[in-house]
Every structure is written in structure tokens, then in C-alpha cells.
Design a protein around this nucleic acid. Structure first.
Lengths: 151, 151
DNA sequence: CGAATTTCAGTGGAACTGAAATTT
DNA sequence: CAAATTTCAGTTACACTGAAATTC
């Protein structure tokens, strides 16, 4: 038999910003992951498709820089997306070191389905917050993120 | 040559709460990780020491439940902490299925050093926010976390 | 030449599953 | 009996390093 509250987090983890952020992000990721697993996608795939849809065709190195995925992992993830017919890989005529990656029509359709799933997940995840509070949270996180992303 | 801004995140990733949380948490983790690596510790170790210090001796299963570490991974992490002399593992006389894990004096000293390091990391991480904004961020994250942690 | 790109091979922390042995 | 605890063996997504081959 265990004491009444066997499962509260230690105060150090509840009150340290990095730790609270870590645990909250983990909850968000579990929800996203469950949704993505149903659609047979992982985090890397969605990030790459999102970048290709928004910014157009790109080399693999630029893609990786854009979404923070290592050059090596981009290779593997793009291999998988090519196999599924969600992107095309062609040689860059003007710079033969590069591949040009392009999202396909099927890739855009897939991305749209993922967007719909994600919207549902966000609603569930942010349920305890009002619209204003959600905006405030996003604003604060954006400030912190931008500070460390650029300078 | 690449276009001027080769590295802005796709809008989908910047404006989806789960994704922004993910990227911001990743930045926080990199800072924590750098500090912990200097003190030869990983995330699991700190979480376990924090729980033992705050709640006292505990079985491995209860520890894992407390800080969200899988039963199997608790075994390995406690093995390492025992080797370093930061915790003791003894058999529970009243329930012979269990081990009782206890933090040692060396463990408490180590935890204190880690706390000092962590404080510096938090300051660096939250630099762009005022004191009030930091409090607001913690409050919002806590609301979301508690909602999903309990119901 | 140096620098960038792609690719492969491999490492390591983290999260998790399944199963066995023991005990309650 | 069922349920809990510890432990081991193995898997997967992810993050990263090093090096080779090619091209700019």
C-alpha cells in the first residue's frame, strides 16, 4: 500500500521552468504521436512536408537547417517520403552536389489530413486555457524561442 | 547561394502550440544537457535524486511512477547512482519484492551542486522575459500540465 | 585549394514492450 | 488465484558524430 499521493512531481521538477516545459511538452508530444501513428507518420515527416509546402522545392541540407533535423537524418526521412510518393527527389541541374526535393500532390493531400488531425490535438491539449490565455502562452513561448534561435 | 532567410521555421511549426512547445523545450533541454554533462549527470539521475530528497526512501516502482520513468529504466539508472555512491539500495524487510532506495549524503551534496547549475541555466533560458512574464508562463504551463496529469 | 552537399556507418540517451522470477 | 516488484532482453524514434565521395 502506498501513501495517498504517490504521483505528484517533486517540487524541483514542478517549479523549474525547463523541467515543467519538458513535462508539458512530453504530454503534447504523446497526443501528437498518437495522432501521427494513426496516419503512419513521424515527427520528421510532418516537419519536412510543412517546410516543402510553405517554401517550395529545396535541397536536403537547406531543409534540415530549416526544421532543425540533422543532415544524416534528412537523408533517411526523405528516402521514406519518396517511397510513399509524398515527395520527389531530382538532381539539381545547376549544382550537381544537390538534390532538389519537391512535395507531390499526394504529399499535399497527406499534409492536409495531418493538419486536420493536429487541429483536433491542439484543441484537446489546450482545453484548460481560454482563447486569451492560449494567445498569451504562444506569445511568451515565441519570445523565448526567438531569443535562443537567433540571438 | 541561398535566399536571405534560410532558417525561419515553417508557419505550421511556429504557430502550432504543440510544435512551438516542442522546439522551445528542445532549446531548454540543450542548455540543461550542457550543464548536466559537465557534472556527469543525465536527466534521469537528477529526477530520481530530486524525488528521493523530497519524499524520502522509496521503492523503485514508486520512484518511476513519481517522475515518469519506466520501471526498466529505473533499474539501470539506479544501478548507475549506486555505483557513484549517490544512493543506497537495500532490501525491504516488510515486502521482499521491493528494494528501498535511499539518497546518501554524497547524493544530497551532488543534488545541491546540480541545483546551482540549474539556477544559472534557468536565468539564461528565461532571459527575454520579465519576472511577471516568467510567473505567467509558469502558471499557464502548470494549468495545462495538471489538466493532463490528473484529469 | 577550401567549402558545401549527400550518403553511410555508428553512437548514445530516452521511452517503451514483453517476459521471467519472486513475493504479496 | 491475481497483482505487484524487480530485472533482463530487445525495439524504436530521435539527435548527433565522423568520414568518404562528389562538386562548387
Amino acid at each position: 500500500m502506498e501513501s495517498a499521493d504517490d504521483e505528484t512531481l517533486p517540487a524541483r521538477l514542478r517549479t523549474t521552468p525547463s523541467w515543467l516545459l519538458f513535462f508539458t511538452a512530453a504530454q503534447a508530444q504523446r497526443l501528437m504521436w498518437a495522432g501521427m501513428a494513426l496516419l503512419d507518420v513521424r515527427r520528421y515527416h510532418y516537419a519536412l512536408l510543412a517546410a516543402l509546402e510553405e517554401f517550395g522545392p529545396s535541397s536536403q541540407a537547406a531543409l534540415g537547417r530549416r526544421v532543425g533535423i540533422d543532415r544524416s537524418d534528412v537523408v533517411a526521412a526523405i528516402n521514406e517520403l519518396v517511397e510513399q510518393g509524398l515527395v520527389d527527389r531530382t538532381l539539381d541541374a545547376t549544382d550537381r552536389r544537390r538534390n532538389t526535393i519537391t512535395i507531390t500532390a499526394a504529399g499535399r493531400r497527406h499534409l492536409q489530413r495531418l493538419d486536420e488531425m493536429l487541429a483536433g490535438v491542439q484543441e484537446e491539449f489546450l482545453a484548460p486555457l481560454s482563447t486569451e490565455e492560449r494567445g498569451k502562452l504562444m506569445q511568451l513561448l515565441t519570445r523565448v524561442f526567438d531569443h535562443h534561435a537567433r540571438g
